[in-house]
Computed example of a mutant assay.
Amino acid sequence: MDGRRLETDRIHLVRDVMQRRNEGSPVLRLHFPLKCSSFITWSAFKPSVHNCSTTVHNRTPRLRGSEEHDPSFDMHDQIAFLGAVTVLAVLQQAYFFLQVIYARRKYKVPPPTISGPLEFERIFRAQVNCSEYLPLFMAVLWVAGFFFSQVTAASCGLLYLYARHKYFKGYSNSSQERLSPIYFSSGVLWILIAMSGIGVLSHILSPVFGLEIAGTLLTMLRKSIIGF
């Protein structure tokens, strides 16, 4: 019972401090006893046990970094580059779709027909191939960005989109011109897959084996990939 009462008093105390902070009122120094032999001191949400009084210091609790003003700021900062690459990928797919529509009109291939002149079939197949790889690209982009490195994942994402653009243009002109861009984009995908695996393993294994073991190994692997 004392433990539950203690936890309830803590919650009420934090709510009172936060309410006063939001209202712009000074946080008063409070003293009240608990039904136990010790008392709790709260300073910036860090409890410590003292005798004879429970104290809230006359200052507003502060959070570290940008969380002091907006707790969601760090999250936005961590996904901004990934979001930008995602928007570019969507716009690129829209451009490929439009190219297929123009090709249908140019070569007089009405939907749902997917066969026609070789020029149309190359454009159509290039668009379909890019669409097929898009879910895989999105998945490894975000996983690598969350668990490994946002900047590195976003950079790889830009390289992948550039390679896909070259692939679409090359395939539209000739089947042979698609080979180099597709090989390059596939290599970028494998890099993103590797970063995703390393990042997820680091997140899972670090609490189990400790940062000294798993963290050191995964840091070495990360440096071998990105060079720093």
Rank of each mutant, 00 (worst) to 15 (best):
V56A: 11
P47V: 10
F148M: 04
T216S: 06
Y171A: 04
L13A: 14
L141M: 15
F228I: 12
S196Y: 07
G3A: 14
F184P: 00
R29Q: 12
D16M: 11
V140M: 09
V90A: 04
P207F: 04
I191Y: 07
S38H: 15
K108R: 06
V188T: 04
T55W: 02
L13P: 00
N173V: 14
Y183I: 14
E212V: 09
K106H: 09
Q92D: 12
V143Q: 08
Q99I: 03
L88N: 07
E68C: 05
F137S: 02
V90M: 06
M1Q: 13
R164M: 14
I191T: 08
R10D: 10
F96N: 09
S48P: 01
M1Y: 13
R20A: 05
T41Y: 12
K169D: 13
F228G: 03
L98P: 00
V208F: 07
G170Y: 11
I40P: 02
H50K: 08
F73M: 08
K46V: 11
Y107A: 02
I226A: 04
W42P: 01
L63A: 11
Q19P: 05
R15S: 01
K46P: 03
F148P: 04
I226G: 06
S149Q: 03
N22T: 03
A84Q: 15
V17S: 01
W190R: 04
P71G: 04
S25D: 14
G215L: 06
M138V: 14
A103Q: 00
A139G: 11
T113D: 07
M75V: 13
L158P: 00
N129T: 07
H76A: 09
W42Q: 07
D70A: 08
A84D: 15
I191R: 04
V49G: 03
F137R: 02
L98G: 11
P207W: 00
Y162N: 13
C36M: 10
I79K: 07
Y107T: 06
R222Y: 03
E132Q: 01
I225P: 02
A139H: 07
R105D: 08
L218G: 01
S172A: 15
S115N: 04
A84I: 11
L118S: 13
H69K: 12
C52W: 13
T113Q: 08
